[in-house]
C-alpha cells in the first residue's frame, strides 16, 4: 500500500522532531550533571565531607554489622506488613457493619482508627516496649515482638482507612446486583465487594508498606539492633559517618523491588480502568 505525499511528509516531520528532542534532552542532562558535580566537589568543605561520609574502607568494615541489622528490618517488615494488612482489613469490615447490634463494634473500630492515626508511632512503641513489660506478667513476649505489635496496631489504623475507601468506592449497583441474586450481605462482601475493593486500593496499600519498611527500624529505640542502630554504633566507634550512608543505600536497594511492584500494580490498575 503506498502512502500519500501528505502522510510521508508527516512521518518525516515527526522523525525530525524526535531526533531534535533526544538531542535537547541529552544536552540538558549533561549541563545539569556538570553543574551538580562542580557545585558539590568545588564546595570549600568537600574534602572533609568526603572523608567523613564516603570513606570506602570504613564502609567495608561497617557493612557486615549494618547488613545483619537490615536482616532484622526485613523479618520485622514481613511480619508487621502481614499483621497490619490483616488487622486493617478486619477493622475496615467492622466499620461497614450495619444495624444496632453492631453499634459497639462499629464505635470501637471507629475509635481505633481515630486514636492510632493520631498517636505518634514512637509513643506507641515506648508504651508497649517499656511500659507493658513493667507489668511483669507471666509469658511476656520479647521487646522485639512487643515493638512489632506497636507497628502493627499503628499501621493497621492507616490501612483500615485505605481498605474502607476501597470498599466505599464499589458502586451501589454492584451491591444491588449481588443482593438481587439472593446473596447475603456477607456473601456480597466476600465475593463481590472485597475483591474489587482490594484490587482498587492495592497501590496505596503497597505505598504504606514501603513507608512501614522504614518505620520498622524504630524498634531499635527499645533495644533491638536494626540497620540504622548498627550504623550508629559503627559511627560511634570510628567517628566517621560513612556507615549511615551504607545503611541508607541498603534501605533504598531493599525498597526498590517493592516500589517497582507498586508502580507495576498501579499501571495495571490504570490500564484495566481505561
Amino acid at each position: 500500500m503506498s502512502l500519500s505525499p501528505a502522510q510521508l511528509d508527516r512521518i518525516a516531520y515527526r522523525r525530525r522532531q524526535t531526533v531534535i528532542s533526544v538531542l535537547i534532552a541529552a544536552a540538558s542532562t549533561l549541563v545539569v550533571g556538570v553543574l551538580l558535580a562542580v557545585g558539590l566537589t568545588g564546595a570549600p568543605g568537600w574534602d572533609r565531607v568526603r572523608e567523613s561520609f564516603f570513606d570506602l574502607s570504613v564502609a567495608r568494615d561497617a557493612l557486615p554489622d549494618v547488613a545483619a541489622g537490615l536482616w532484622l528490618n526485613v523479618r520485622l517488615l514481613v511480619f508487621c506488613a502481614l499483621g497490619a494488612l490483616a488487622l486493617g482489613l478486619l477493622i475496615a469490615l467492622l466499620r461497614t457493619l450495619r444495624g444496632p447490634v453492631f453499634f459497639p463494634v462499629r464505635a470501637l473500630a471507629t475509635g481505633y482508627t481515630y486514636t492510632f492515626r493520631g498517636l505518634p508511632l514512637i509513643i506507641v512503641l515506648y508504651v508497649l516496649t517499656l511500659g507493658v513489660p513493667g507489668l511483669r506478667l507471666e509469658g511476656m513476649p520479647s521487646v522485639l515482638v512487643l515493638g512489632g505489635i506497636a507497628l502493627v496496631i499503628t499501621y493497621a489504623g492507616y490501612l483500615a482507612e485505605v481498605f474502607r475507601a476501597g470498599i466505599e468506592s464499589v458502586h451501589p449497583s454492584q451491591l444491588a446486583a449481588a443482593r438481587s441474586l439472593g446473596l447475603t450481605y456477607r456473601q456480597t462482601m466476600r465475593h463481590v465487594v472485597l475483591p474489587q475493593a482490594v484490587r482498587r486500593v492495592a497501590p496505596p496499600l503497597l505505598n504504606d508498606t514501603v513507608a512501614l519498611q522504614k518505620d520498622v527500624g524504630l524498634v531499635s529505640l527499645a533495644g533491638p539492633i536494626d540497620a540504622v542502630r548498627a550504623a550508629q554504633i559503627s559511627t560511634a566507634e570510628t567517628f566517621n559517618y560513612t556507615p549511615y550512608i551504607v545503611a541508607g543505600v541498603l534501605f533504598v536497594l531493599l525498597a526498590m523491588p517493592l516500589i517497582a511492584v507498586t508502580d507495576w500494580v498501579t499501571l495495571r490498575a490504570a490500564r484495566r480502568q481505561s
Partner: peptide, 28 residues
C-alpha cells in the same frame, strides 16, 4: 434473601461483576 432467590432482576446498566468471567458471573 429468600424472596430474592425467587425473583430475577436485570438492570439498565447490566451490573455484571467486572472481576469475574462471564461463567463466574453466572454461576455465583
Amino acid at each position: 434473601d429468600k424472596v430474592r432467590q425467587r425473583i430475577g432482576i436485570v438492570f439498565q446498566s447490566y451490573n455484571l461483576f467486572p472481576h469475574m468471567t462471564v461463567l463466574e458471573n453466572i454461576t455465583l
